[in-house]
Structures are given as C-alpha cells and as structure tokens.
C-alpha cells in the first residue's frame, strides 16, 4: 500500500526530529494504527543505518575526514577527555541511567541484542535453579534412609512340597 504525500512528509518530519513532543505522540499513534506507515518508517530507519555503514566502509569520502582527524593524541587531549567524561557522567545522572546497563537505542537490531542479553541472563538463572533443585533432591533422597522393601510372601508348605 502506498503512502499519501502527507504521510510521507510526516515520516520525514519525525525522522528529522522536527516534531514537538505532542506532535510526535500523535504521529506514533498514527503509525501504530497504519501498517504501511509503520513499514515505511522501519525501512527508512534501516536505510539510514545501512547508508552510514556503507559510507563507513569507504571512509566517508564525501565528508572529507582524514586519518589525521582520528588522532586522539593531540595537545590538551587529556583535559578534553576529562571534560567529556564529566559531561557523560552528568548526562547519565540526568537520564537516571545505570551505566552498567546497555542503552537500548532505536535501531531494531539493538532491541534484539538487548533481548538476547536478557535471554542469556534468564538461561543462566534457569541453569542455576536446576542445579539447586538437583542438589536438594539428591540430598533429600540420600537422607531418607534405605528403601522399604515389601516382604515376599513365601508359602512354607509349597517349599516343602
């Protein structure tokens, strides 16, 4: 299904962050109820990401970034690094973020990774729980003493015969 020019326009405004919060909320509600818009928005996000990665492989020729620009060993580098670290800490405090936890970004793949890490945690916990249950089970089984064996009825008369 094709988008109307207005729908396409709104997707661009959203992606270029030209919407205020109220508009953004209305837009996201609209996207959630419109499959074509949802699909196109996802496609554009993937496209933007793929374009960046494609250009990364080439070294961003259009941007004119040189190897020298990537040098982190310039005069005053330590001082600026400190200030950047400080800014990062302040920002995390503002965001009430836990620095140990990864931030889940907007890319679809990011959510998948975050989910995989949660899954990994779940399986570790499940394995630990199984171990505990096994140990408790064996302990209980061993401490319950010898099994009670039902005596076999032996007919003494039949033996004599």
């Amino acid at each position: 299904m094709e988008l109307t020019p207005q729908q396409y326009e709104r997707i661009q405004q959203y992606l270029d962050r030209l919407m205020d919060k109220e508009d953004e909320k209305l837009f996201l509600d609209e996207v959630n109820s419109n499959v074509a818009m949802k699909e196109h928005l996802e496609f554009e996000k993937q496209l933007e990401e793929s374009l960046l990665f494609m250009e990364l492989e080439k070294g961003f020729p259009d941007l004119g970034i040189t190897d020298a620009d990537m040098n982190t060993d310039f005069a005053g580098a330590d001082a600026i690094k400190k200030r950047i670290d400080e800014a990062g800490k302040n920002w995390k405090q503002q965001q009430n973020m836990n620095p140990l936890k990864p931030v889940i970004g907007t890319g679809q793949g990011v959510k998948v990774i975050a989910m995989n890490q949660d899954k990994r945690k779940f399986w570790y916990m499940a394995a630990a729980a199984c171990g505990v249950i096994a140990v408790v089970g064996i302990t209980v089984w061993l401490s319950s003493g010898p099994r009670n064996v039902d005596p076999v009825d032996v007919d003494d008369d039949s033996l004599h015969k």
Partner: peptide, 25 residues
C-alpha cells in the same frame, strides 16, 4: 564548552549507541 559537550551527549549518544550496538553485534 562543558554545556556544549553535555549537549553532544543529549543529541547524539542514543543514536550512536544504537548504531554501535548493531555494528558490534
């Protein structure tokens, strides 16, 4: 300058983190 560096985090940290996660994964 400190405020500008903080703003770089505000504007670009999450978009880059998303890209970084996808690239590394």
């Amino acid at each position: 300058v400190n405020r500008a560096l903080l703003c770089c985090h505000v504007l670009f940290y999450n978009p880059f983190k998303g890209l970084g996660f996808n690239y590394c994964s």
